[in-house]
């Protein structure tokens, strides 16, 4: 595998913090390339035991299983410190998130008719 700067996936994360909650608005791809940045951006909120982390997927253009795995990991970590992860505006990625079990560790919009 090689990298190409002009073809590489990009992810922008904009945080909005209020009291004991942070809303992280994701724009771009949650892919193998951007997962390290995703984890690194969320880590300070985990370190500070923020009560609720909300991931807004409305600007997400692509996800891969590694990215979903990172979200699961964050959900587990935030739960361990008594908080919760909520994922909102999941749109077309609903099935992919459910298949990987995100709904088992985080609050996600209900998906009708999902059979594991």
């Amino acid at each position: 595998m090689t990298h190409s700067s002009f073809l590489q996936d990009e992810l922008k994360i904009s945080p909005q913090e209020e009291n004991n909650k942070v809303l992280l608005k994701l724009e771009g791809a949650l892919s193998a390339t951007t997962v390290p940045y995703f984890r690194q951006t969320v880590q300070p909120y985990l370190d500070r035991s923020v009560g609720e982390i909300v991931l807004d997927f409305s600007g997400v253009t692509k996800i891969v299983s590694r990215g979903v795995g990172a979200a699961i990991d964050i959900a587990v970590q935030v739960k361990k410190v008594g908080g919760k992860l909520r994922v909102v505006n999941i749109g077309k990625f609903s099935r992919s998130l459910y298949i990987q079990g995100v709904h088992l560790v985080a609050e996600v919009p209900e998906l009708e008719g999902f059979e594991p």
Binding site: G67, I72, I99, V105
Partner: peptide
């Protein structure tokens, strides 16, 4: 996974199979 989280990789093959 619900207890320990996911440290590396994903579930690519599992996901493809389900889709």
């Amino acid at each position: 996974i619900s207890e320990l989280g996911v440290k590396n990789g994903g579930f690519g093959i599992h996901m493809i199979k389900a889709l």
